[in-house]
Design a protein around this nucleic acid. Structure first.
Lengths: 340, 340
DNA sequence: TATTTGTACGCAATCGTTTGCGGGAACGAT
DNA sequence: ATCGTTCCCGCAAACGATTGCGTACAAATA
């Protein structure tokens, strides 16, 4: 019951042709007559011939596999990006191998190495927090096409796909101002986080443009943003002499933590304090009140990332391109920031 | 700046040995002297030699890649399984290529085919709902090791990894009975769903063992279970003459829909009606009241699935093994079913 | 008729690794 | 000195597809 694989040789034998002719016929080489091409293709079809991918990859050093590295595959937003990656890659005839770094920089380094050794045509990566040793990564992949997405790093010279964090954050803050809020707090991460910094920039710009002075007491920075940290920060804000009237958490999870804390203290949302998150995670409509947040199209982001990567893979030139691409996101207004 | 790949040939040249000797030395063949092995290995190390995976796969028809097919990669539970799969596979030196069927049977068929053509060593699949045409799948993979997990089908002769749905459901219902509930409704899917049927069996068995008569009016079947359907079913149950005092939804999403519907009608949870879900999704602690549910260890499931698959891949015999493996799950009691 | 052109195809090498087989050297035993 | 073993190692084929080069044949041109 062994698998009867049909190879070029078998086709050639059957047709009384040479393997070279069969190969060329299947690849529409001009040297082959139309008649022969038809004969070959017909037989190939009926014998269910599929080229051996390993022989092929072996010969032209091309695997049609792209490697994807993400910090945490269980994040909803990540999965939507992965979905986009899969769709686009499969549509273009590429297979995708995925690996999870678990936000461990060493693991991440290892992944880059493994993928490289394995012979992927290119790598799509979302970096761990605080990816410091970029040199190691850089030296690892010499000349291998790479595109960063979501968690990027300007230290690596390659094209980077992010969402328009700054603009989105700007819009969030402006929205809060529009519904009458003035003391707008922000919960962000340290400056090692590209996304967080961008969002913080948008926050500051929006305040500036609306003549609201930046109040340092309303800017809270945490190491690893999470639901718990959101809760903790909310408690700190609540115990202040002058409470904020809005809290913008850089992350949905943190925002939900904030909501839980506020509810515990019977703070009215959004009346007393409005809350906004970021990501439009699936949690944002489960929590009560439903969370205003920023919808980032992960699927689109994944697709775009793949597109750029494949472009680079299939490019003739060996020049390292390094574009910065921003995917538009949009604010979704829900109960947690309705106009009072 | 081309990548300087070190091959066996180069090592051989450098060491004044033949490629065969080098190959055997690296593979610890007994024919090679310890001394030579050391020399070879040292040079290989320092030249950063990595065997070309394609030449290797090409030669022994082994790719060390396993294909994974899931219906929907954005489901949290799925991602935890994927995480387990990745961990176990990588630990055993396998790479994982993933694809999403989007619950489309045709797409799924195509995936099987593509993976096969691509040359994976085995396939790990979670099937789409209502996978009817198993024959096609079966004919596609002749002799290729396959293991089903989570969404399985007893029509396919291979090992299947599921959680102990029946037992878990039994425990859920028993728990509800223990907190004093007697009119326990269930929201399930049609009989095309393996998991749903198993859970329904557990439900019935628990009622039977506790001398509670099965009330058909309390058994609601929907086509595609979801939050919306949960809501709809809850409304139906609420409009009945005799309301249930507990609702067991086969799925967390549906259970959350139920909760939302109940809250809209100011039904007290769990006092008037207790609610239980299934999966321990991340939503279950966000919703209020927090949801009692069944925690299935997706990670463990993924690991076990990989283990069985690799066992089969690396087995000498060609016999098709087909074990049924159940992963233990445990009920997590939260606010939605606390004792009144 | 001799020469050129073009068409349609085959030969053989190649990619990097593995492996069956064979063979030389060293050694002890006869 | 001859034979048999054992220990190391090399030769060469094989895996399947691609491709530069060569060539047979026919048709066109000189």
């Amino acid at each position: 019951m062994k698998k009867e694989v049909t190879t070029l040789k078998k086709l050639a034998l059957e047709l009384n042709l040479s393997t070279s002719t069969v190969s060329r016929a299947l690849n529409d080489h001009p040297d082959i007559s139309l008649q022969t091409k038809k004969r070959v293709k017909n037989l190939a079809q009926s014998l269910n011939y599929v080229p051996n991918i390993f022989a092929k990859g072996f010969r032209n050093h091309k695997t049609n596999i792209i490697g994807v590295i993400v910090p945490n595959i269980t994040h909803y937003f990540t999965t939507t990006m992965v979905r986009g990656i899969l769709k686009e890659a499969e549509a273009k005839g590429y297979r995708v191998i995925i690996s999870e770094s678990n936000n461990d920089e060493n693991k991440q380094k290892e992944m880059f190495n493994t993928m490289l050794q394995f012979g992927v045509d290119g790598i799509l990566a979302s970096l761990t927090k605080r990816t410091r040793e970029v040199e190691q990564i850089l030296s690892t992949l010499n000349n291998l096409p790479i595109v960063l997405f979501d968690k990027v790093s300007n230290k690596i010279p390659c094209t980077q796909i992010t969402i328009n964090d700054e603009e989105a954050a700007y819009n969030v803050v402006e929205h809060l101002i529009n519904i009458g809020k003035k003391r707008i707090a922000i919960i962000k991460e340290g400056n090692y986080s590209y996304n967080s910094e961008k969002r913080y920039l948008g926050y500051k710009k929006a305040l500036l443009d609306n003549n609201i002075e930046l109040n340092e007491k309303l800017v809270l920075t945490v190491e690893d943003i999470s639901l718990q940290e959101g809760k903790r920060m909310a408690n700190i804000l609540l115990s202040a002499k002058k409470r904020p009237d809005a809290i913008f958490a850089i992350t949905d999870a943190a925002a939900i933590g904030v909501i839980q804390a506020l509810k515990k203290f019977n703070v009215e949302i959004p009346g007393d304090i409005a809350v906004v998150g970021f990501s439009n995670s699936s949690h944002s409509t489960i929590v009560e009140p439903k969370l205003t947040t920023v919808d980032q199209s992960g699927e689109k982001m994944g697709k775009v990332a793949v597109k750029y990567l494949i472009d680079e893979i299939e490019a003739e030139t060996e020049s390292v391109s390094s574009k910065l691409v921003e995917i538009k996101s949009s604010i979704i207004i829900r109960e947690s920031s309705f106009k009072a």
